Amino acid sequence: MATKTTETNTTAGSNSSATASSKKTTQVDNATVNEDKMKSSPLHKFFLSALKDIYFAEHAIIEALEKMQQAATTEELKEAFEDHQLQTQKHVSRLEKIFRLLEETPEKKECEAIKGIIKEGEEIIKSTEEGSMTRDAALIIAAQKVEHYEIATYGGLAQLAITMGHDKVADLLEKTLQEEEDTDYNLTDIAETFINFDAEQED
Rank of each mutant, 00 (worst) to 15 (best):
I162C: 01
I98F: 08
L86V: 10
I162L: 13
D83G: 09
E192C: 01
A80T: 04
M38Y: 03
T6D: 13
K52Q: 15
S41F: 00
S14P: 01
K67D: 13
Y154M: 05
L43G: 06
T183A: 06
N186A: 15
I141F: 09
A170H: 04
T73M: 09
I114A: 02
T25P: 00
D198S: 15
Q87S: 13
Y55V: 05
A18W: 02
T19K: 12
E120R: 08
A161G: 07
K24T: 03
Q201A: 13
E35K: 08
Q144R: 12
A64M: 04
T128N: 09
A2L: 15
A152K: 04
A142K: 07
E180A: 05
L187C: 08
Y55F: 11
T183D: 04
E7V: 14
A170G: 01
Q87F: 07
A50P: 11
E120V: 09
D182A: 15
Q85F: 07
A143W: 03
D184I: 07
K67Y: 04
Q178R: 04
I190A: 06
N9W: 11
A60W: 01
Q85I: 01
A80K: 01
P106V: 07
F81N: 02
K39C: 00
L187P: 03
E58T: 08
T26P: 00
A158C: 02
T134A: 14
K45G: 08
I118W: 05
A71C: 02
A137Q: 06
E79C: 01
L65R: 10
T5M: 15
E66D: 12
F99Q: 01
E110W: 01
A57D: 05
I114G: 03
G131A: 08
N15D: 10
D182E: 15
T188G: 14
P42Y: 03
H91A: 10
H91C: 00
